[in-house]
Write a protein that binds this DNA or RNA. Structure first.
Lengths: 296, 296
DNA sequence: CCTTCTACATCTAATTTTTCGATAGATAAT
DNA sequence: ATTATCTATCGAAAAATTAGATGTAGAAGG
């Protein structure tokens, strides 16, 4: 039973004529005869009685009419639904590192939600490896990495930006004001860093390894807001992107250390999979993030 | 959009795999790919995201799933409906002459209704010409004629029976006991007959005309029950089938006239159109009438 | 009563659609 | 590294749909 036949059937029933239905639907009359016969054969019952030149719906035919109408109505309804502008609705799954997640939510989310109230977003966090896997399995719609500069033909970098990073310490620390430090000068200080294997932490470790150095931090924690406030209140030092430390640098609680021989490139990248279907809401979200998140 | 594609779509979505759906449905994998593509092209939107080996329903796909389920459910429901034994339901339109109608209703209807309470019947009356026209236009499902013996390749005679007919008079009339009358002996008596042009009345008139005779009845009326009771109470005579007069013959109120030279063949025939769709209820009704109505 | 018109069924042939099988490209699994 | 697996795609084969011609038969109109 195919929709084509049901449509023909409905028209024949309504017009009370094979010939008229054929003309209306742009079929030849024999085609209409065939289609109805096809239905009758499949259902194993007569749909129309043909007596002389009069066709009359049988009991079964009358029953089918009702079903056929319902079925066609559903089809139409769906197609109508499709036409509706779905610009600003839908669900987006965004995955970012912990620090970015916090920043995006506090700095921009409310504004975004106000502008596009129908786009629902799920934010989760993960490290770079997990995030890329999620893209590969279509479990994330878009991710943001803070890591080395990533290139891969399977991913589209919607936007990227190098992130300046600094070693930071409390303003009252003994490093305040010192110029031209070397990494070796601070390598034995008590460090508090983000978790091992994640994002810029991994880049950092790798860079140290190149110099045959290693740091065993006294504390590892993902939440960068906690790291910064700890550093500000202690003799601990850390290595963080400026956007994380900016508030406390401004308020004078933290200071940058002038370490010259450790220039690490950390990139912030907004990435989605090259096969990703760009719904209008995803497009909107990505454009928003490109504009707002990368402006500072 | 054809049902075939929707079924495939549902299976792909449920199994999360084109290949598995193909195996399940007995298609080749390329066919499934093609069918889904066909849907996507027609609807102008992506239904599945294909990222690596993972297919995921898009927003639109998820919407379609719901519609597709509803549509397929309707189809199934209808087919289930068909399977149900519709033996004893449906509507039948029966057309008979006045006299038969009365007899069938009083003698058999209640019994039939008790046996097949779900078959609804509409009885209407008409003369032979009207009845045959109704068959031709599928306005009557089955008719019963009391007329000359009808043959026509378009009609199926479900059952037929010759009806004995007699001239009748009141038992106390002067014809009682007379033997070997001729039609000419009674032609001038006051006749009460059924209406002109109907069934056996027409046959009767034609037969008289052959002999260059004519009767102008003093009363014409369709209702044979009225004719018989009038005859029984008066000097009127009539010409009627035995099944009509039987009760009053038995009770001795009427007597047959022994007219030898007027042997009219009147047939009772149960007829339907050769193209008539035999629903089970119609079959049942016809079988019942053949058994009961023609038994006496 | 005869002719013409209309309606549906059926047959054949043409066309279109569907399907398959093979292959490619790419990831996942071992 | 090699083998499985998965989907897309292409060309050919198969199947289904469609149209056109013809047949039959009743309806309509003169």
């Amino acid at each position: 039973m195919e929709l084509r036949n049901l449509v023909t059937f409905i028209n024949v029933a309504e017009l009370g004529s094979f010939t008229k239905a054929a003309a209306l639907l742009g079929y030849s009359q024999s085609t209409v005869s065939f289609q109805i016969k096809q239905l009758e054969d499949e259902l194993g019952c007569l749909l129309f009685e043909r007596i002389n030149h009069t066709i009359t719906l049988t009991e079964r035919g009358r029953e089918l009419i009702s079903y056929a109408h319902q079925i066609c109505a559903l089809e139409e309804e769906f197609k109508e639904n499709l036409k509706e502008d779905k610009t600003y609705s839908g669900h987006i799954h965004v995955v970012t590192p912990d620090s970015v997640c916090e920043e995006m939510l506090t700095a921009h989310y409310l504004d975004f939600h106000r502008k596009y109230p129908d786009i629902s977003i799920r934010f989760t966090t993960g490290d770079s490896g997990v995030m890329l896997d999620m893209l590969d399995h279509n479990e994330a719609d878009v991710i943001m990495t803070l890591d080395h500069r990533l290139y891969n033909k399977d991913y589209i970098i919607a936007k990227e930006q190098q992130l300046p990073m600094h070693f930071v310490a409390a303003s009252e620390s003994r490093f305040e004001g010192l110029r031209s430090l070397s990494i070796k000068d601070i390598i034995n200080e008590p460090f508090v860093l983000t978790e091992c294997g994640q994002g810029y932490r991994r880049v950092f470790d790798r860079e140290l390894a190149k110099r045959s150095l290693e740091i065993t931090p006294v504390l590892e924690i993902g939440r960068t807001d906690i790291i910064t406030s700890l550093v500000a209140e202690s003799n601990l030092i850390s290595y963080l992107p400026d956007f994380v430390t900016k508030p406390l640098i401004k308020s004078g609680k933290l200071c940058y250390l002038d370490v010259c021989d450790m220039n690490i490139e950390i990139w912030k990248q907004l990435i989605y999979h090259k096969n990703k279907w760009m719904s209008k809401s995803l497009r909107t979200f990505i454009d928003y993030v490109k504009r707002e998140e990368f402006s500072d």
